[in-house]
Design a protein around this nucleic acid. Structure first.
Length: 103
DNA sequence: CACGTGACCGATT
DNA sequence: AAATCGGCCACGT
């Protein structure tokens, strides 16, 4: 994985490596991808994932430890996290101090 | 080439 | 603690 890969490719690679039961932030993924200020684009990449992708996109939340999606999408992400042991409030709040991915 | 758009972020009220 | 503001940058049109 190096600078020849497209931004989406780098994002996919990084997100794929987030361990089960942990979360990280859009900004963190952006930094790891070598574009520290492209957090919004990370969201854009995840939104356009191909149907049936196995990428654990649900392990990415915003800087406040809150799910950025809304409505039914919020509930889907919340379920996915709950099912791997991450406690998520009804509003989509996660305790980063407990669940943030440390590498 | 010139906008407009956002699953965002950090600093500042 | 929460809202506001300005900046960012990959992508589409």
């Amino acid at each position: 994985m190096d600078q020849h890969d497209s931004f989406p490719q780098r994002v996919w690679q990084i997100v794929a490596s987030i361990p089960e039961g942990t979360v990280t932030t859009y900004g963190e993924v952006a930094r790891m991808a070598g574009s520290p200020r492209a957090a919004r684009q990370v969201g854009g990449v995840l939104k356009r994932l191909p149907e049936g992708s196995t990428l654990p996109w649900h392990r990415v939340v915003n800087r406040q430890g809150v799910i950025s999606l809304t409505g039914p999408d919020l509930q889907r992400q919340r379920q996915a996290l709950l099912s791997e042991g991450v406690i998520v409030s009804g509003k989509g709040e996660i305790d980063l101090g407990t669940y943030r991915w440390r590498y």
